[in-house]
Amino acid sequence: MSELNKVPVAAELLAQGKSFDVLFWVGCAGSFDERVKSVTRSFVKILNHLNISYAVLGTEESCTGDPAKRAGNEFLFQMQAMSNIQVLNGYGVKRIVTTCPHCFNTLKNEYPSLGGNYELVHHSTFLQELIDTGKLKMKESGSFKGQKITYHDSCYLGRANGIYEAPRKVLEVLDADLVEMKRCKTKGLCCGAGGGQMFKEPEKGAKDINVERTEEAISTGATVIAAACPFCMTMLTDGVKNKEKESTIKVYDLAELIAQNEGL
């Protein structure tokens, strides 16, 4: 099991003269948020379990600048972006996988014109590829078999980048009962965290967006709400608490569901 617990760091690999295929960009939420750290660990366990050649930047990683950019601080965003690009290019990174759609979107779409050109893969697509190539197989008696699961589309994965099917394909492996919310895919309702909202109180209104979305998820009768974004994870978890349903409804990330299903 010791191999499963090791996380290769780019600087150390370089010192040992080793290379890696894909860089796992952990993201700030994945590094610091108690709940989301579990997603990071689950994804790393899957990578280790399947002997994927990867590395993380460790303490060399830094915020992509996404929240600053969307809040209007372009200066801070570009400072972050260019420093990150120097680090990434320094390691000769070609391919990046990330568990955060916001990091994914920024690295994929907004870094190229600043000199950072990488092939970006969100972990939902990464997991789907592992399923398609047969590396990740469906368990006959997985822990989610027959459970009602509803998937919440992340805006920065779905509308922002057109990724709707990969996360759903990943969930199919669980042999669960997948139910859709009325507002899904291109019409998916935001969790309320994007565009810098995660870092401020919502403007005044009749209701919080995450509560509106959680109510919709609960109305499907699902016992698991599947997320593919750390911000959605936080917002929906708070929403479930607000509705006092935390004992019956769980919010899990795709990586956690797969890791649990694989017994990792």
Binding site: G30, F32, D33, K37, V56, G58, T59, E61, A68
Partner: peptide
């Protein structure tokens, strides 16, 4: 990071 955490703790996960 957008939160007030020490960058030295980034890899503690």
């Amino acid at each position: 990071a957008p939160w007030k955490f020490s960058p030295a703790d980034r890899f503690n996960w």
